[in-house]
Design a protein around this nucleic acid. Structure first.
Lengths: 242, 242
DNA sequence: AAGGCACATTGATTATGATCAACGAAACTT
DNA sequence: AAGTTTCGTTGATCATAATCAATGTGCCTT
């Protein structure tokens, strides 16, 4: 991975100049000319919560980088039971290289800004650029680590621990730069109670009861259902049994 | 991915000539001279059930290819609760590139044969060989797909569906070439009841009861606790709610 | 052959979280 | 302002799987 600090902004496509994905996302592995080539096919889009990026059992036409907001990846059984199998945050790459069809649904969980490009353009770029493929492999390995961590939560934790684990995950991912301090941490939940239930393998009612319990025990405060303040992240972490 | 059918066996290191990993595993992406270089550092080992390949929170010194047998990947909470987060079969690659420490335990579930090599040798080879990195990316993406599929099982399926899902997974993975026909399928379970419970997020007792139920309903037969015959794979698949 | 151990099964009871149901609050529509 | 819809909370009851306990089976060791 070479250092790109020295590349002057004027060498870069305008849309890329201040883009997060170029700093921490996959575009950071591209040379200016490759970035230019890709940028010719990109579209910056904003999506409403609930909008679909791609669906289970259908062709993936576009890949995307998340610029802001949260994407949920879900799987649905034939009888309607749902499980959220991943949450992705900026500047994550969204897509499934080397497969024609998706096996999951990818949907905006919040207001979302993405930079999208046709699958075939990226596929070609991957062939030309080992650095890009390296970057995608790194993200994929991280996602695999996270998926396995979540399997422990799903298989072996109690409802109380699951809800604490979820809040801890959001607290540490939604606004990473606000972290590190010992100050109280405040954020909006990117998911409805129904979504949280689908992420944790619980029902809405159980999620609600456990949130109430954490609130009454003063681990968190909740305003307007969505806005959460974590008074002590370490205390929450202990509840999550990480 | 180039075709290697035309490479004469005599060009290959002796240990690699009849190796599964060279056909379907990551070694298939290596040129003969790279294979030779790697083979100088490889050791073929056989391991007993329970032997450790690498452990959580410790340095990974060796990567391996599975030649025969099953490896289980587990995570353990501080209070001892365990979750199996993956099963790997021949000719899978076992390791975690680009990270110094492991976040999981990798352990032989059955008698195991592996081809092991030092991490740094492979790390170097990855740098020189985009084809190798491509192959590893492909396996990693497949593992991620499988992990997400299993998250649905852990989060949303009943105990009966979980046990059926497990049996279906083993039936279709342990001996892939025996598949495709409509004939009854027979195999030895690679896991004890305790392991199966840790894979499914259940207790030993619940696993046992559900196995008994499947046996009494004639979906499977069980001999000596470990040997299972699946009379009708489609019927099992329906029970698994895939 | 007797004893010990690991692994699995089966039964009785309990607890956790699901289900069913009612209600509350906020944001729409009209 | 009244009605509707969506989202969340709370309570009562039920069901599934966990826990506790006893027993069975095969395989060691001695």
């Amino acid at each position: 991975m070479s250092n790109r600090q020295d590349i002057h902004n004027s060498d870069l496509p305008i849309v890329c100049r201040s883009c997060e994905a170029r700093h921490r996302g996959i575009c950071g592995s591209l040379e200016p000319d490759q970035l230019l080539q890709l940028s010719k096919h990109t579209t910056r889009r904003t999506l409403e919560p609930g909008s679909t990026l791609f669906s289970d059992a259908s062709e993936i036409k576009n890949f995307s980088n998340i610029l802001s907001g949260v994407v949920k990846l879900t799987k649905t059984l034939s009888d309607g039971r749902q499980q959220i199998v991943g949450l992705q945050f900026a500047p994550d790459f969204i897509g499934r290289p080397f497969k024609f069809e998706s096996a999951i649904d990818a949907e905006a969980a919040t207001d979302l800004t993405v930079c999208s490009f046709p699958k075939n353009v990226l596929d070609k770029l991957i062939n030309d650029s080992p650095a890009l493929e390296h970057q995608i492999l790194k993200q994929t390995l991280t996602e695999l680590d996270e998926a396995r961590q979540w399997m422990v939560t799903l298989g072996r934790k109690t409802a109380a621990e699951k809800v604490a684990s979820f809040l801890w995950l959001i607290a540490t991912h939604i606004n990473p730069e606000a972290l590190d301090s010992n100050k109280p941490l405040s954020f909006d939940l990117p998911l409805t109670r129904a979504n949280i239930a689908d992420f944790l393998g619980l029902t809405i009612e159980t999620v609600s009861r456990q949130m109430t319990k954490l609130r009454k025990e003063n681990v968190i405060a909740i305003e307007n259902n969505r806005h959460v303040t974590v008074h002590d992240l370490n205390r929450l972490e202990r509840r999550a049994c990480l």
